[in-house]
């Protein structure tokens, strides 16, 4: 594999496309979270690839570990918001959350 950088970033780009498509196409709040998760997967891969290419995986590992922990908290809070919204509206469609305008 002569061009490892492009090889790895191509897969990151594909993951970003899937994630963004998921964010834009769906009306289901939980599926939006899944889209966010896929974007995060892409970033994880990109960071690890950066560590690998720079030959400094030792410096990158703590970064990725911290990032994973931080993202879990974000996802948990976001899931909490979805649950609370479901409790109010009995639906997890985005339409329940589309009233603020102006």
């Amino acid at each position: 594999m002569e061009n490892l950088f492009w090889f790895l970033t191509s897969f990151v780009a594909l993951l970003f496309i899937i994630g963004l498509y998921a964010l834009l196409a769906t009306r289901n709040l939980l599926r939006i979270l899944i889209g966010m998760e896929i974007l995060t997967k892409g970033v994880t891969l990109l960071l690890i690839a950066a560590g690998f290419l720079a030959g400094r995986q030792n410096a990158m590992q703590p970064i990725v570990i911290t990032m994973i922990v931080v993202e879990v908290v974000i996802i948990a809070v976001a899931a909490g918001i979805v649950i609370a919204s479901y409790r109010n509206n009995k639906t997890i469609s985005v339409r329940a959350l589309r009233n603020l305008k102006g």
Partner: peptide, 29 residues
């Protein structure tokens, strides 16, 4: 790619914990 510790976290936290969060959210809905 030479990051075994990060791989453990990805496996346990992302594949494990986040799945638990999602499944509990789905079960509430």
């Amino acid at each position: 790619m030479g990051a075994p510790l990060a791989a453990v976290f990805e496996l346990s936290v992302c594949a494990g914990l986040i799945t638990v969060v999602f499944i509990s959210a789905i079960s509430m809905i």
